[in-house]
Simulated scan of single mutants.
Amino acid sequence: MTSVLDLAPVIPVVVIKDAEDAVPLARALVAGGLPAIEVTLRTPAAPEAIRAIAAEVPDAVVGAGTVISPAQVETAVSAGARFLVSPGWTEALLDAMRGSGVPFLPGVSTVSEVVALLERGVTEMKFFPAEAAGGKPYLTSIAGPLPQARFCPTGGISRESAPGYLSLPNVACVGGTWMLPADAIAAKDWSRVESLAAEAASLATPAA
Rank of each mutant, 00 (worst) to 15 (best):
A133I: 06
C152R: 03
Q148C: 00
R192Y: 02
E119F: 03
L168M: 11
S161G: 14
G134D: 07
E124L: 05
S161W: 12
A133E: 08
P163V: 08
C173T: 08
L118E: 01
V108A: 06
S167P: 01
L93F: 06
V193C: 05
K188Y: 00
G135D: 07
R159N: 04
T140S: 15
A143L: 02
P106D: 11
C152W: 02
C152M: 15
G134Q: 07
V114P: 02
L118A: 02
L105N: 07
C173H: 04
V193M: 07
I142R: 04
E160D: 15
L94G: 05
R192A: 15
G135A: 06
S109Q: 11
I142V: 15
G175F: 07
G175A: 12
D189G: 04
L118Q: 05
G164S: 14
S167F: 01
S109F: 12
S112G: 08
L105M: 09
V171W: 03
F104I: 09
D189W: 03
G176M: 03
G101R: 12
E124N: 11
I157A: 10
P153H: 10
G101E: 10
R192V: 09
A186T: 07
T154R: 10
S112C: 00
P163A: 13
G155D: 07
S158A: 11
T110A: 10
G135H: 06
L117W: 03
G99D: 15
G175S: 12
P103V: 11
V114C: 02
A96Y: 03
M125V: 04
D95A: 15
P169F: 00
S112R: 08
A133K: 10
F104C: 10
G144L: 12
A162E: 06
P169M: 00
K188F: 00
S158R: 14
L180A: 08
C173S: 05
A184W: 06
A143M: 02
T110M: 09
